[in-house]
């Protein structure tokens, strides 16, 4: 084979243009994400305070873990932090699980042919469009311990004898948070699942129909395996999103320990307790958890992302 020539001038110009187009975006990303992230990690090794963030001293790993006078201190030794980790994981698994199942049911329903399908689909988008804060407030009102319509409904149906204090009761408040999140994000799951369903080939269904296979069996043997890749993408996006949950919990139950997530914990340390060093350490741990998950996802889904130009 003859020697390979260098890319032509035209091609080189094009490459140069591509990088020129990319650099502004990369610079902005570095300014709003890269640099702040590095500073957060840096602060996690300092004793900076929120009120005066420019004066600080280095304290090493003290914010993470330190042994002092016979006791462990630092984020990793803080039971409140581990409680927040547990809350976040519980919230993530339960709400994403429920959203997936409900989303699947809604998607299967919307996949059927019926009059007014467009309207129903539009209606399912409403919760998605409602700001999280607003949905938390709306549900806060519906779940109100004295005047809430949910209590009224449940009492009317005879399911409960007296009103429940949804947002303050330690056993119920996490479920209240999950309820709001499920309401708000199920549409997202439903739409992504619906899109996957609509790309399925119809011939294997016809074959199954001809063979007289029960619809439930068809769903588990044909539909589910076929939409699984798309469903997995949606689930992973939702999981990564749920792990950083903040708004719903903050608005619905404030800084209550029963529902505190990692993000709420970190922000409380940072802003309310003004302890930038400690809060940054918590943020960094959260970042590492999500980064680890993201990297493993990107690694597994690597081939999909490259694509073709």
């Amino acid at each position: 084979m003859p020697a390979k020539r260098q890319a032509s001038r035209v091609r080189r110009q094009r490459l140069r243009a591509a990088w020129l187009f990319l650099i502004p975006m990369l610079v902005v990303l570095a300014a709003v994400a890269g640099w702040p992230l590095m500073r957060t990690i840096w602060f996690s090794f300092t004793d900076a305070s929120f009120a005066n963030i420019s004066e600080y001293g280095l304290v090493g790993f003290e914010n993470y873990l330190v042994y002092d006078n016979g006791a462990w201190y630092g984020v990793l030794a803080d039971p409140t932090w581990w409680n927040a980790v547990w809350n976040t994981l519980f919230f993530t698994v339960v709400s994403v699980g429920m959203e997936t199942v409900l989303g699947l049911i809604i998607a299967l329903t919307l996949n059927a042919q019926f009059r007014g399908r467009g309207w129903v689909r539009a209606a399912t988008l409403i919760p998605w469009a409602v700001p999280t804060i607003v949905s938390a407030k709306m549900w806060g009102w519906m779940l109100h311990d004295q005047f809430g319509i949910i209590n009224e409904m449940l009492m009317g149906l005879g399911l409960i004898a007296e009103p429940l204090n949804w947002t303050a009761n330690a056993d119920l408040s996490m479920w209240a948070v999950i309820m709001v999140d499920v309401w708000k994000t199920t549409p997202f799951m439903a739409l992504l699942t619906l899109a996957a369903l609509q790309m399925l080939p119809s011939d294997c269904y016809e074959a199954a129909k001809v063979d007289g296979i029960h619809p439930v069996r068809v769903f588990f043997k044909v539909t589910l395996p076929l939409i699984l890749p798309a469903l997995m993408v949606a689930i992973i996006f939702r999981v990564l999103d749920a792990l950083r949950v903040f708004d719903v919990i903050y608005v619905l139950t404030s800084n209550s320990a029963d529902t505190m997530s990692m993000s709420v914990y970190a922000r409380q340390q940072l802003v309310e307790f003004q302890d930038v060093g400690y809060g940054s350490a918590a943020s960094t741990v959260l970042f590492l958890i999500i980064a680890l998950l993201t990297i493993s996802y990107l690694y597994l889904g690597r081939k999909q992302i490259g694509g073709e130009a």
């Binding site: 003859p2 020697a3 390979k4 020539r5 890319a7 032509s8 035209v10 091609r11």
Partner: peptide, 9 residues
């Protein structure tokens, strides 16, 4: 046309 570069030649 110049839309493609030859590998050589």
């Amino acid at each position: 046309a110049g839309l493609e570069d030859p590998t050589s030649g």
